[in-house]
Design a protein around this nucleic acid. Structure first.
Length: 167
DNA sequence: AATCTGATCGTG
DNA sequence: ACGATCAGATTA
């Protein structure tokens, strides 16, 4: 299990996002294998950073490799990994993961995943522990448009593991 | 100051 | 299809 250096995250979110597939996020001793992500860059009208730096999104503009956690819909938290260089507001939203011993249906959405990992605003801005356990990202990730947003929903910035094929 | 909207989810 | 539930953004 090699811990990813911050240099891994110091690149464009669109470059980092597909490579995060099959990486392992460790929080509080729990390992979550990332299987679906979404890239948010500053030029994206749907990104929190689109209209510049605010109190809420300032972590997105900070150093890469940290957690950006935000509160939405009055009841949910979502978790991102900050990418790019300092001053560049971007991040990769974690949409789904696989955690040993936890039902898949509890980790197959951004808010559900955050809840399963026990992440909330107290973790916003903290350093992320992400590992490469040797599996590596898929050669051909499934890239598709986004769901649950109104602005620029058709931008192909959602990345998932391809469906597993049987022999 | 008032209103709108949302990177969601569970229920109906 | 909709309500929950609230903070940030937008408009005035």
């Amino acid at each position: 299990m090699r811990r990813l250096p911050s240099a891994f995250f110091a690149r464009d979110a669109i470059e980092v996002a597909p490579e995060l597939l099959n990486k392992v996020l460790r929080v509080g001793g729990v390992d979550a294998r990332i299987v679906e992500v979404e890239a948010y860059t500053q030029d994206d009208p749907a990104s929190h950073s689109f209209r510049g730096r605010t109190r809420r999104n300032e972590v997105m503009f900070g150093p890469p490799g940290r957690l950006y956690v935000y509160f939405v819909y009055g009841m949910h938290y979502c978790v991102n990994l900050v990418t790019g260089t300092v001053g560049d507001g971007q991040a990769v939203l974690l949409r789904a993961a696989v955690i040993d011993g936890i039902d898949r249906r509890r980790t197959d959405g951004p808010a559900k995943l955050a809840r399963s990992l026990g992440l909330d605003l107290a973790h916003n801005g903290s350093t992320a522990d992400v590992y490469d356990d040797g599996v590596g990202p898929p050669e051909l990730p499934v890239v598709s448009n986004r769901v649950g947003i109104t602005r620029a929903a058709d931008w192909p910035r959602r990345y998932r593991l391809p469906p597993t094929r049987k022999e």
